[in-house]
Amino acid sequence: MIDPLTHATVDAPMLADTLSRFFQPDTLARILIEGLGKAAIYFIIAIGLTLVFGLMGILNFAHGAFAMVGAYIGGVIMVVALSSASGAFTRIALFIVVVAVVFALLTAAGSALEIKLVRPIYDRTPMYQILLTFGVGLILEELARIIVSSRGIQPEPTWSAAQATIPGFLSGPSDVLNSLFGVNIRGFYLFAIVSGAILAVAVYLFLTRTLYGLYIRAGSEDPEMVEALGIDVRKAFTIVFGLGTGLAAVGGVFLMWDPTWGPSVMLNLDVLLYAFVVVVIGGLGSFKGTLVAAVIVGVADSFTTWLFNTGIVAFSGLPEVTIFLLLVIALIIRPQGLYGVEEVGGH
């Protein structure tokens, strides 16, 4: 908690004060709920990245761009379809429709991308897959910039009109949380937790209960062996790449309402970097690891944000520095990640 850079001195009373403030139930509840809310969205975004890497050995650098596209498409639909008179129920209902539409659109787009662009370079070194997807991300970002600015919307920092389509009971403090913990926390975080949990269960069931989920899990261990057992692994690749793209975009739709993000072209790289942190800490290719790592990153994020907001630490970059430090430390201590297999990535 000491920040050497701003020459902040920490004296005993202050430390004691911090601790006592931290251990108040309302503080803990705030940090935890906001952290889990953030974690839910990080998970939705990162799970696609980790599935694609696990099965195909491709670190998809266009992943953040897909989230950005999702955020913008979601924003466009919400802004166009809603009026200021629209009620909370309409807004939530439309949001769910948007999630479905964006998921379908981007899953299709991702599959097409895999067939057209990624497939020809499977036999090259992983570097070229990184380069290709990175280039695709850059193109998407620039296209978004062009389209958005031609409509008179600032591509940076955020498109606040889309952010503002969130119903009041989600953008403001939640009554439920207030009655439970006696503390004002944005309803959005609770909404994110519930949605994230539903999506996580859905992905989990897909992986464990469906035939394709089985092929994907087997393929993550040994794609050649799966092929030799009579399964068209390339088809599985296409499906997973499509699903990963769709999930990233769904994460983007959530970011559209997120008070700290919102639609902007900056999502391309910012989201990408956060997703990397989560999947690397959890272990590339691991469902369980991604879940745990998302919670770690989310709670670390909300804890450090709290430290800064309350003035305990005066260093404004604390949350970001912490998250990237987590990445570095995780790679030093346990490069394969929390739940990664030793030889993962040895495709």
Partner: peptide, 24 residues
């Protein structure tokens, strides 16, 4: 580390430095 993991850790270090410099 090698491969993707090396790329990631160097990226991580650079981002830490970037955030430090940007806020210092």
């Amino acid at each position: 580390l090698t491969g993707v993991y090396f790329a990631m850790i160097t990226l991580g270090f650079a981002q830490v430095i970037y955030e430090l410099v940007r806020n210092w």
